[in-house]
Design a protein around this nucleic acid. Sequence first.
DNA 1: CTGTTAGCGCGTTCAG
DNA 2: CTGAACGCGCTAACAG
Lengths: 351, 351
Amino acid sequence: MKQRRDTPRIYDVAKMARVSIATVSRVANGRGNVTGPTSERVRATMRRLGYRPHALARGLAARRSETLGLVITDILDPYFAEIVRGAQEEAEAAGYVILLGDTSVHAHREDLLVRRLMERRVDGVIVASSRTTRAYAQLVTSLDVPVLCINGQRQFFPHSVQIDNRAGAKLALQHLIGLGHRRIAHVAGPSDVPTRHERLAGYRVALAEAGIAYEPQLVVSGSGDLESSRAAAGALLMLLDPPTAIFAYNDRSAIGCYQAIRERGLRIGADVSVVGFDDIVMAGWVDPPLTTVAQPRAEMGRLAVTLLLGMLRGEAAPAQVVVMPRLVERASTAPPAVAMAASRRATASSR
Amino acid sequence: MKQRRDTPRIYDVAKMARVSIATVSRVANGRGNVTGPTSERVRATMRRLGYRPHALARGLAARRSETLGLVITDILDPYFAEIVRGAQEEAEAAGYVILLGDTSVHAHREDLLVRRLMERRVDGVIVASSRTTRAYAQLVTSLDVPVLCINGQRQFFPHSVQIDNRAGAKLALQHLIGLGHRRIAHVAGPSDVPTRHERLAGYRVALAEAGIAYEPQLVVSGSGDLESSRAAAGALLMLLDPPTAIFAYNDRSAIGCYQAIRERGLRIGADVSVVGFDDIVMAGWVDPPLTTVAQPRAEMGRLAVTLLLGMLRGEAAPAQVVVMPRLVERASTAPPAVAMAASRRATASSR
DNA sequence: CTGTTAGCGCGTTCAG
DNA sequence: CTGAACGCGCTAACAG
């Protein structure tokens, strides 16, 4: 606040347009029927005065804050930043505003975050934070406003927008298999998120469909971060019969794989192919640019807002909306060295 | 809204504690003098009922929204994300909430962004967006609430938090000169931001102080993005007498330089040293990790909020707060090849 | 189709 | 030190 006291109020518009404040309200909100000329006069007056409705007063009266809570893990992580972007765009178009809640800001005090959302009387909440506990989910759900999660523990939430992790993993594997790889490793994610299991499942299914035996020692667990993945990939490369390709849990861990590969004097792509998951901006910046499974995150953010706004209007929303990923081929994948040698031999002998 | 109708209101607390709502209000806000026992009884009741004041009602009555507007260029850019993070932390501690405005979401409609901030009756605004026009600045300033800019066109704003760009550039140059470099190029930023000129000035001053002649052809202009910097660096490397080191406008352009160097079959560090500016997360991820001038961005975000909150309390704020950068040495810088050869010769002959 | 009126939930005088 | 009463700016019945 502390607005100049002369910020025009609805009352000022009404007086100047010689109508009641109710009429101004109707025109401003496009509700109710107002005669053409009257409506036009009011509209003109609003413009002249530069009238902007007071969101707080409006919210108080309408019992609707036009604010959506968006809970993420970390705004520094481009993965979340893109979701935020998409959500903001969609919300903005509807006149809504996004209230960001960063669980890493509220470390150990998830209740504080929920309290803020409650105090601000958000109309709905999107939980994109990936590692929400059941207790936390219950806390959010208890707000008694529509809640929707993005790529989360969907068992905790009534509505969700999810990427098809299995399909994504299969895309990655099929790409590698198509290039001729047979020994494909997987640096898996942290064991407490469903995403890990879904991507792992996709990995196994794709192998099975290609008639390649699953070898447990080719799957190692990371935490989805750089360091652990680097260590995991390092271990893989030390195997007697090392993999020719690695499917990483996500782009961050793929970059960890990059480091491990380089440390052993191997070349990414030529010696060991790497496929990531997510397609964060970084993926295009690293050297070589990373082949990865792209999640349409901005779109998911937009979709989540669209669904939530629909629910606010009383529309029924599907329990789950599954979004399909797509493969972005860049330079970190190539046919395996052995296959190339073999194909060279084949080519030579066929001459 | 759409809160369960049984969300406790101040009235409920008052009734149950057998006091008036005025007393509850006083206790809740720590204002006015309330007897110890009464205060305790009210407090206990608030806890029992899980009472949370209604931010909208409170804001309407108090003429204060406890909301701060934060205008950035792009939340996807980690540079801004960190400022946001710092600002959120500080605001949260004071019970304030940050309303994010992304100028790239509101492309060509800056007025829309300002309108949103006005409708929501933000108590103050921080403009961290780097390329604000005068018109835009006037628009924001006309909101008649305290405004403060971070690393912006400070000529347009009454208060600002700024990084010392000249000092930062000097840090970079002194580091390179200390390593033995003499031919140091600069990929400069877009010509319409003051930052460009300040960093360029620091570059020239450092050279002068080291007794190295300034060569105009060693300074080329980029736009602060990957592509243009890559082209700019490419041109530098094509010179008859190419530089042994490049001081890039920012980390993104440094990564563009990486690409240009690699394209020519040269090694970063060993053949051409590169220093960036900003220290975005990416800087530590690229290969080799980038030596760069770090801006304490989270701290600047926090500082901005602190200053703004002070202004809201009526305290006088300094027109400018200048923050010092520091050099983060990583692996993209090394002594120049010629210097190494020379030092080897020197070592050999001295034996 | 338009105006009147009663709140929305809370802060804040002003009396007591 | 405490309570009653008013108003913040707007929406939403309800009358006309």
